[in-house]
Design a protein around this nucleic acid. Structure first.
Lengths: 197, 197
DNA sequence: CACATTCACATACGTATCGTATGTTAAATA
DNA sequence: TATTTAACATACGATACGTATGTGAATGTG
């Protein structure tokens, strides 16, 4: 027996998340008004607090959605390489390029950490970080990388990539800076290699 | 001729910055109330808006203060090494350790970027980044590092360090994780070396 | 089939906060 | 001495959040 209520509820959840995604990206989390955001999709704040608990709950849902999209894209990029090492590099570069998306920057890189705390504590469990950890684990098991702590390496590598993205996005000439950032990223990553190039 | 007004004005500015530093660190920027913050030092919001323009102006002043303190400390650490390469590593490790301070984390690493935008655009000009850039420039001129873009290298290196710090601070056992993060940081940094170890 | 209950929201309310507009007092100046 | 200005304080309006309460439809129950 199908409950029609649940169907529309999922629809409303999706609508709210989509609206929030737009509003947060454009205005920033704190400046985004829940009143207008909900009204944009024909609802009120009642729906919001019922579905997400509070404003931060909605942010968490939005972040989780974007995070999963990013992880999926990174995985797809890395899978195109038979060489796992090149896959790791490509994954990092992919993060840099994805983070050029204003939506990703504003919501995931800036407001996310500020209002939800450290990404690793997010309910979404940070899919991006998991993807990088998997790749690094594989590379260590193949004796390509030094035997360092996987999580440490993944975090620092991701941190470097994200920081590069913030830099690029804030600059006047992103096109000129992107290759520099990518090169620096590759340099740093080679430090993880067991047999440096 | 001494203007007494300017003297007390500097005092009040300092008082407000100090109070804001405490409030922002404890409550976070958005949750910190300007009313209570100013009342804590015997003033009203009038003083605030007169001196700093708006709430974000006060945040910028606080960030600039902490940023300079950090850069000074990093410089001091690096100057203890005659070996410039070890100085760079020590500088990075120093950033990681400094970022374990909750005040630094909350204000400079989380709320700062979220509300003021990319650090390089801050009026304080990001003293930390400048310090790292200087060290890297020197190391390149001595042919110790590869000839990569200085700003790119400095940004990614700092990004990695800051991310490590956020990770450590959020963990349950910071003591166990710190050495792992430091080791991973050193690994990454060696990727910049012209002649890898 | 009448009735109670629960779900998924809407409405109403109180409170807090920000920025600004407008005083106010003491110092600087003419 | 009169006037202007700097450095605040006070008052005000507007917005936004969270909660408490209302409501209608769907579901369960005797």
């Amino acid at each position: 027996m199908v409950k029609r209520r649940n169907e529309t509820m999922e629809e409303n959840r999706s609508k709210l998340i989509a609206a929030a995604r737009k509003a947060f990206a454009e205005k920033g989390f704190s400046a985004a008004s829940m009143d207008v955001l909900t009204a944009d999709v024909g609802l009120t704040r009642g729906a919001l607090y019922h579905n997400f608990g509070d404003k931060k709950g909605l942010l968490a849902a939005v972040v989780a959605q974007i995070d999963e999209e990013m992880a999926g894209q990174a995985k797809a990029v890395a899978s195109n390489f038979q060489n796992a090492w090149e896959g790791l590099i490509a994954e990092g570069v992919a993060y840099i390029e994805m983070a050029l998306n204003p939506e990703v920057q504003r919501i995931v890189l800036l407001d996310g950490p500020a209002f939800l705390g450290d990404p690793s504590q997010w309910p979404s469990q940070n899919a991006c970080l998991e993807a990088t950890k998997n790749t690094i684990t594989h590379l260590i098991s193949e004796d390509i990388l030094k035997k360092i702590d996987v999580e440490a390496a993944a975090r620092l590598l991701n941190g470097a990539a994200m920081n590069a993205a913030l830099w690029i996005a804030a600059s006047k000439e992103p096109t000129n800076i992107l290759p520099k950032a990518v090169e620096a990223f590759k340099c740093l990553a080679t430090g993880l290699l067991k047999n440096p190039v």
